[in-house]
């Protein structure tokens, strides 16, 4: 397949993915915006006023980066897992598998589709946060880079989940029982400085903790983690997950009998 053909195929997958979540915007874009809006009102505004400062910032300012990151993580993941599994469920994935599109293009197309939704919701949430807090981005490069890399990591994770999923239950188990606890324990709502040493150590094993704190560093200029170490972890995750996805696609796991 020539490179311009590959690009057309890649573009086709990305457009199809964006068209899909755009078509069902009431299910894909509005609910996360409402949920995060409620977090802003309840935790940031009502409860936050009584909490006072966290990590040297007003509680609302502290949680805004975490909530933006939470929406990016959840939506990047859920877009890929639900879209790819739907293609499997309806057998429309066969259109792609029979076509000459290389596996890495298929994977990249779905990843960019997931990133598009993650970033779209992230942007909506960021705009909403401006009604509640005055955000002044301290390091634009770090802010954008970490959000892009995090989106890639969770889009890849969603892809693996979709490959192994056989039922609709299978695509909700990981987000419910793994992803949500990791996000909530990843320093979205609190600084790990508040935790006893053991739980502080446990938090260090949670990759989302590094992503949230690096994003917070980009916006607020403060972080509980080493930024270089956080970027290294993100890159390692991307390499491992991308390679795993390609190997699974090559083997035909969950796709070919």
């Amino acid at each position: 397949m020539f490179s311009n053909h590959k690009y057309i195929a890649f573009e086709t997958i990305v457009i199809r993915e964006i068209r899909r979540f755009g078509r069902i915007w009431l299910q894909t874009l509005v609910p996360p915006a409402i949920t995060i809006g409620l977090y802003f009102v309840i935790f940031g505004n009502l409860v936050g006023r009584r909490i006072g400062e966290m990590g040297g910032f007003q509680y609302m300012e502290f949680i805004v980066p975490g909530l933006i990151m939470m929406s990016v993580i959840q939506n990047s993941y859920s877009n890929v897992v639900s879209s790819f599994f739907s293609h499997k469920f309806q057998h429309s994935i066969e259109e792609l598998l029979v076509s000459p599109v290389p596996n890495y293009i298929i994977l990249s197309g779905f990843i960019v589709g997931g990133m598009a939704r993650g970033l779209a919701v992230g942007t909506i949430v960021t705009l909403m946060s401006l009604f509640f807090a005055d955000l002044e981005i301290q390091n634009l490069f770090i802010t954008i880079t970490v959000v892009l890399l995090t989106s890639i990591v969770f889009a890849l994770a969603g892809f693996i989940n979709a490959l192994f999923a056989n039922t609709f239950d299978d695509i909700s188990i990981i987000p419910t029982f793994v992803l949500t606890p990791l996000i909530y324990l990843g320093g979205v709502f609190y600084s790990v400085e508040l935790l006893p040493p053991f739980w502080k150590f446990v938090s260090g094993l949670n990759p989302i903790f590094y992503m949230v704190n690096t994003f917070r560093y980009g916006i607020l200029g403060t972080s509980d983690v080493n930024i270089v170490w956080a970027f290294f972890i993100l890159c390692v995750f991307i390499v491992i997950l991308f390679t795993s996805c390609l190997l699974l696609l090559r083997k035909g796991t969950g796709l070919r009998s």
């Binding site: 590959k6 057309i8 086709t12 259109e95 076509s99 000459p100």
Partner: peptide, 17 residues
């Protein structure tokens, strides 16, 4: 089942570059 007839054929054409 949710896509339009033309989009299904156009998408397939895109897969073939």
């Amino acid at each position: 089942q949710f896509e339009k007839v033309r989009d299904i054929v156009m998408t397939q054409a895109g897969y073939y570059g």
